[in-house]
Design a protein around this nucleic acid. Structure first.
Length: 300
DNA sequence: ACACGGACCTGAAGGC
DNA sequence: TGCCTTCAGGTCCGTG
C-alpha cells in the first residue's frame, strides 16, 4: 500500500472511562507506545482540567516509552528520561491511532477533528491523537521517582484487580467511614478505579444497599465480615467482565448497545430486577450529586 | 483527609 | 423547526 495510506482505530468506550475502559485503552496503546519514541508532539490546546506542564512537547520529544501502566483510572507511561507521563481521560477523553506503513517518511494523515488536543507521532509509525470534548482530562509530566508522592497517587486507594485486594483490605479502608457505601466505593481514596457506574453495579451484585454506612462492612473482632467478602467478589466480577467485554472485537453493528443491556442496574430505572424470583423494580436516587441505581428488594 | 455540595465543561436529549 | 433548559459525571476546591 502507498506510504500515505493510513488505518484509523478509535479507542473510545461507549460508557464513561472507569477502570475497565481505561484498561482497554491501555491495552490498545501498549503495542504502539511501549518501546517507541516520541518523534513529534503537538499540543493544540494545553488547557485541559489541569494545564499542561512547562515545555510539555519538548520534554516528551525524543524520549522512549519504557512501559505503559495503569493505576486506577490513570494511564502511566514511564519514559527513558526518568519522567513519567500521566494521562487521565476525564469523562469524555478518547484516543485515535492512525497507522502508516513502517519505515514511511510520511506521518500518517488522519484528518484532525474537533477537540483534538494532543498528538503523539511515535517511532512505531502510529499517530496517537487525544480527543476530549469536555476537557476534564489531564496530562502531566512528573519525575518518576516522585510519582508515589504526587498529589494524584499519594492518597489513591488499592487496586481492586490486584491479588492483594481482599476482604481484609476492603474492611480496612472502609473502617470508620460514616459516609454511604455508594459514596465510599466511588471515592478514589477508598478504591482506585471504580466510578459511578461500577459502584452501583458492584453493590447490586453484592446485594448490598448503596445507602448503608460504609463502616458496616468493616471487620468485627478482627474477622472480615461476609459482606466485605461479597463486595470484593462483586467488584472483581463487574470490573473483570467489563474489561473482557471491552476487549472483545466490536462489530455486529450493535456497537451502540445501550446501557440497559450492558448493565444490571445502571440506567435501568423502572425496569425489573434481573435476579431470578426477585420482583423488585430498579430505583434511581441521587447520592452526593450523582445517580445511584439499585434494587430496593434484594439489596439490603 | 471528615464529609458534602458546587464548579468546571460540552454534547445529547427533552420540552414547548 | 428551533431555541432553550436540563442532565451526565471525575475530580478539585471551598465550606461546614
Amino acid at each position: 500500500m502507498p506510504a500515505s495510506a493510513t488505518l484509523t482505530i478509535s479507542i473510545s468506550s461507549h460508557s464513561l472511562p472507569e477502570l475497565p475502559e481505561v484498561e482497554n485503552v491501555r491495552r490498545a496503546l501498549q503495542p504502539v507506545m511501549e518501546g517507541a519514541r516520541f518523534e513529534k508532539v503537538v499540543a493544540h490546546r494545553p488547557d485541559l482540567r489541569v494545564a499542561f506542564p512547562a515545555r510539555f512537547a519538548t520534554r516528551l520529544t525524543g524520549e522512549t516509552v519504557l512501559r505503559l501502566r495503569r493505576r486506577g483510572k490513570y494511564l502511566v507511561a514511564d519514559l527513558s528520561s526518568h519522567e513519567t507521563l500521566l494521562m487521565h481521560l476525564g469523562m469524555s477523553g478518547s484516543f485515535r491511532i492512525d497507522f502508516t506503513t513502517p519505515g514511511s517518511f510520511h506521518y500518517p494523515r488522519g484528518a484532525a477533528r474537533a477537540h483534538d488536543h494532543v498528538v503523539f507521532h511515535m517511532s512505531s509509525g502510529a499517530k496517537i491523537t487525544f480527543n476530549d470534548p469536555r476537557r476534564f482530562g489531564l496530562m502531566d509530566l512528573i519525575a518518576t521517582e516522585m510519582l508515589p508522592e504526587h498529589r494524584v497517587f499519594r492518597f489513591l486507594g488499592p487496586e481492586p484487580l490486584a491479588a492483594e485486594f481482599d476482604a481484609a483490605v476492603l474492611a480496612r479502608v472502609a473502617r470508620g467511614k460514616k459516609t454511604t457505601l455508594k459514596a465510599a466505593l466511588s471515592d478514589q481514596r477508598v478504591i482506585a478505579g471504580l466510578g459511578n457506574i461500577y459502584a452501583s453495579e458492584a453493590l447490586y451484585h453484592a446485594r448490598l444497599s448503596p445507602l448503608r454506612r460504609a463502616s458496616t462492612i468493616a471487620t468485627r473482632g478482627g474477622t472480615p465480615r461476609d459482606t466485605a467478602r461479597r463486595l470484593v467478589a462483586a467488584i472483581r466480577k463487574v470490573l473483570n467482565e467489563a474489561v473482557e467485554r471491552g476487549a472483545a472485537p466490536e462489530g455486529g453493528g450493535d456497537a451502540g448497545a445501550d446501557a440497559a443491556h450492558r448493565f444490571s442496574v445502571y440506567d435501568r430505572e423502572g425496569r425489573r430486577c434481573r435476579r431470578r424470583a426477585c420482583r423488585g423494580v430498579i430505583r434511581r436516587i441521587v447520592q452526593t450529586g450523582r445517580s445511584t441505581f439499585y434494587c430496593p428488594v434484594c439489596q439490603v
